[in-house]
Design a protein around this nucleic acid. Structure first.
Lengths: 150, 150
DNA sequence: CTGCTATCTTACGTTTACGTAAGGAACAGA
DNA sequence: TCTGTTCCTTACGTAAACGTAAGATAGCAG
């Protein structure tokens, strides 16, 4: 029962790995590349502890990798765009709680929008490919039935 | 002006590579893996010559690789399924011209169908991902506007 | 405190998918 | 026939994305 002061559940790497369906090595590697938040403080001695947000992030990364075929390098670039703008703004006006939250959300939105763009682009390419395959199949079937009834 | 006895246009590897948008090395590598028809006879001395069908095949391979992220190993398996059934059948009944054509088309259809299945599966995954991203974006925008007007 | 299991770092190994260089034939045009 | 370009094979090199083994440390159960 590991918990933060805010009562958040925390997970160790083995749990996370099994949950997300990747290896511990992959998680450490992604962390090393900075794909998980920059300064993920290692609580409790030297064992890494992950939040639900970390797990969600990992799932997101895996999907971007698997579905869109993005390289880890491209994934870091996607992440940087969001983090840079986030930290620049937080520094600029971090007075009230609400203001800070606003900034964080404002910074995160373009990142999600970018991901959606990538998904849509891939969907268009796939639709095109699908159309060609469907056409091809139809033509083959036509020829076949033409041959069969001589 | 290289031509076969049937009057088909033939291309050399440099032409093909530029046309398809890959390197000569990649083409030779794919050939080595058996991704282009098994026994592509090397006409005219030792220079490879490619048909329009070969070029179409290469484009197909590149798309399956890029859009679906299939490994070259998976691509060979996809190809084998078609070729095996094709050669088995050709041997069984290769009497008339029409019968042979019929067999070839019959053998090729499942391959295209399999490709379509893969495309559809990927489309479903992408649609799911898209829905989640859209939801996420909507929720973020709601929170943002709620914060902005206090 | 002890023993057992999970994690840690370090670092070399591995696979995939080609890149690239070397030395030598084969073409295509003049 | 000469020559510059294109292609050939052979073979070692490489980047990405982890795999894997070793030896040490941390955390938990009794």
């Amino acid at each position: 029962m590991t918990q933060t002061t805010t009562g958040q559940r925390l997970y160790k790497i083995g749990e996370v790995a099994e949950d997300v369906g990747i290896t511990q090595r992959t998680i450490r590697y992604y962390e090393e590349l900075g794909l998980l938040g920059a300064d993920r403080a290692r609580l409790k001695g030297s064992h890494r502890l992950f939040t639900d947000a970390d797990i969600a992030r990992l799932r997101e990364l895996v999907r971007l990798r698997n579905l869109l075929g993005l390289s880890l390098d491209e994934l870091t670039q996607l992440a940087e765009a969001a983090h840079v703008s986030q930290y620049l703004r937080v520094r600029w006006e971090s007075s009230t709680e609400d203001a800070e939250r606003t900034e964080i959300i404002e910074a995160a939105i373009p990142n999600v929008e970018r991901q959606l763009e990538l998904v849509h682009a891939r969907q268009r390419s796939l639709a095109e490919f699908e159309a060609e395959l469907t056409d091809k199949l139809a033509r083959m079937r036509e020829r076949l039935s033409a041959l069969e009834q001589q």
